[in-house]
Design a protein around this nucleic acid. Structure first.
Length: 592
RNA sequence: GGGGCGGUAGCUCAAUUGGUUAGAGUACCGGACUGUCGAUCCGGUGGUUGCGGGUUCGAGUCCCGUCCGCCUCGCCA
């Protein structure tokens, strides 16, 4: 009565002689007339089933009608392969001589085939027929890995005293941060819940609640435009701890990532270095440096000032003008067209003026590009950049932020395109000592780079009002190969400090009370010092499975326009539903 | 909201400066074959070239619009 006794991945030579029953999908069939081979596939693997004249004529004819993705259950006897072993399959030493076949579900010819020899189907098709795509080896491996990582993280933290606690999905909308997904309330007309961007406030309040150590693998929602590594709906491993300092959280995470990398990849990640934010910006132009290759940004303002290159000298006249450069090993082999393309890219992507370059020639000379302006400083420049013959030096000038962004992104772009990155490496780094506040030029006010609940460095509390821009926070980001995989901080646990930070952010006491009264109250009635971190789980799985696409690590993801191509969500809804929710759809006006 | 790339058979792709009847592999259908394992061999079905307009004697190819997918800037406390 049972449909199977074994999976398609487990039979070995030692099982020869056993009567077995396997169930799965027809992955391939090879019909030789008198003898038919069927590769049967399930989650565990593939096993060759053989139908020959000894199996009976009727059975062979039945087997000959099998087609790809038919779902069948086959009984038979495990036997050693008489036609030679297949070293490509773990089950390649055996085959099952069929004695019975039941077609559980005949499949129509599927629009896409798992592991199609013609090549992987376009993502649009893979997403529409996700159940077919998920049958592929690649996707089964990713989903299985994701499962193992989740289990490992849960048990690792449970063993260390963490409680898994669920927090609400229907939440209060928060004023700052990303755009919220809103959920209209039926019972309270005109009011809305928001889906959580993260359980930030709840986990802090759990610390005030005496829960001490909290963890949750939780979905978060941010209504912003997606990217290759960003999805509106994503998963965090959320962690919060009481009575801890920054180092405690960092140590816990180092242990967790070591365990995961060891378990999944067999890789020892070693000690994770720490780099200050200012250092990262200065040397890599970005707060998530990719340390798999050595190229660094250098300030060459002093040298640029000695040249007659007006673009540089003009920039240096302003107070915050800088000139920086990177030396790209072997970059001189790029064509004129490719190099011109860099400037075009920088203009279009960042609104930069361009990317001046020059090539490093023999005997300490500079060639092409802006080399004719650099004659006097060439030796000093080559020395500072550590440049060798055949390298390309790329410059950027403007504000520190602009020059950093252009060269920081250019560094990564060229690193990839010229193969400078050692793909076999795992370069973790902690970025710390972030500024607590960031001046928003457009709106002329202070912003939180992290979030408004991040604690300032205690020693700098005095200068919070006098010199807000100089105050550092107790925040930390974990960066892996140039991507941010986790971020957290020690939180503010005192009402007065929280209110001072709110004030700086332009949230006065009345507004703070209206929007965050529960947090301020929780802090007031005895909240322990606490801190935590949130792990980008999807991104972590991307690294572990070697994909650069977040949709690959999510079973049912959405496209860049927020569509689920399988279910066709979002959809229009029945007017009666809208009425119940007190919601009316406004038609977009023409020409808007 | 901006920039870029793409859409041709169920699927993966090709199609010269705009030029005859839009091809190949695979899937599917039929036939041959007792040891294959990406089986092989023979034959066949299958196309509104995303959609709508335009230029032209003639458009898969050029132009405009639009939809979809991907990459990206802005955005992402």
């Amino acid at each position: 009565m049972a449909l199977r006794t074994h999976t398609c991945g487990e039979l070995r030579k030692s099982d020869v002689g056993q009567a077995v029953q396997l169930a799965g999908w027809v992955h391939a069939y090879r019909d030789h007339g008198e003898i038919v081979f069927v590769d049967l596939r399930d989650r565990a693997g593939r096993t060759q089933m053989v139908f020959d004249p000894e199996s009976g004529k009727e059975l062979c004819e039945q087997a000959a009608r099998l087609r790809r993705e038919d779902v069948v259950s086959i009984t038979g006897t495990v036997s050693e392969r008489t036609g030679g072993v297949n070293p490509k399959m773990p089950t390649g030493e055996i085959e099952v001589m069929a004695t019975g076949l039941e077609v559980l579900n005949k499949a129509e010819a599927p629009p896409i085939l798992p592991d199609d020899q013609a090549g992987e189907a376009a993502e649009e098709h893979r997403l529409r027929y996700r159940y077919l795509d998920l049958r592929s080896q690649k996707m089964q491996h990713i989903i299985g890995t994701r499962h193992r990582v989740l289990q490992l993280m849960r048990s690792y933290l449970a063993e260390r005293g963490f409680w898994e606690i669920e927090t609400p999905f229907l939440c209060r909308s928060t004023p700052e941060g990303a755009r919220d997904y809103l959920v209209p309330s039926r019972i309270q007309a005109g009011r809305f819940y928001a889906l959580p961007q993260s359980p930030q406030l709840f986990k802090q309040i759990l610390m005030a609640s005496g829960c001490d150590k909290y963890m949750q693998i939780v979905r978060c929602f941010r209504d912003e435009d997606p990217r290759a590594d960003r999805q509106a709906e994503f998963t965090q491993l959320d962690i919060e701890m009481s009575f801890v300092e920054q180092q405690d959280v960092m140590d816990l995470m180092a242990g967790l990532y070591s365990a995961v990398w060891q378990e999944v990849l067999g890789v020892e990640i070693g000690e994770i270095p720490v780099m200050a934010y200012a250092d990262a910006m200065e040397r890599y132009g970005i707060d998530r440096p990719d340390l798999r290759f050595a190229v660094e940004l250098k300030d060459i303002g002093d040298l640029a000032g000695k040249t007659d290159f007006r673009v540089f000298t003009e920039v240096l006249k302003s107070d915050d003008g800088v000139v920086k450069a990177i030396c790209v090993p072997g970059g001189a082999s790029m064509s004129r067209k490719q190099i011109d393309g860099l400037a075009e890219w920088a203009k279009q992507q960042f609104g930069a003026g361009g990317v001046p370059t020059c090539k490093v020639g023999a005997n300490g000379t500079l060639e092409a590009g802006i080399s004719k302006f650099l004659g006097d400083v060439a030796p000093d420049l080559i020395q500072r950049m550590g440049a060798n013959e055949g390298d390309l030096i790329c410059f950027a000038c403007g504000t520190f932020a602009m020059a950093s962004q252009v060269l920081g992104e250019l560094r990564v772009k060229l690193g990839r395109e010229l193969g400078l990155i050692d793909e076999s490496q795992w370069k973790f780094v902690w970025i710390t000592d972030f500024p607590l506040l960031h001046w928003n030029e457009e709106e002329e006010r202070w912003d939180s780079p992290h979030h408004p609940f991040t604690s300032p460095v205690p020693e700098q509390l005095e200068q919070l009002e006098s010199d807000p821009g100089s105050v550092l926070s107790r925040a930390y980001d974990l960066v892996l190969n140039g991507s941010e995989v986790a971020g957290g901080s020690i939180r503010i646990h005192r009402t007065d400090v929280q209110q001072r930070v709110f004030n700086l952010l332009g949230i006065d006491e009345a507004e703070a009370k209206a929007k965050f009264h529960f947090l301020l109250d929780a802090l007031r009635y005895g909240c322990p010092p606490h801190g935590g971190i949130a792990v980008g789980l999807d991104r972590t799985i991307m690294h572990l499975t070697g994909t650069d696409n977040i949709r690959d690590v999510i079973a049912f993801p959405k496209t860049l326009t927020g569509m689920d191509l399988m279910t066709q969500a979002p959809s229009e809804v029945d007017p009666a539903q809208l009425e119940e929710l007190h919601v009316r759809v406004v038609e977009e006006e023409e020409g808007e």
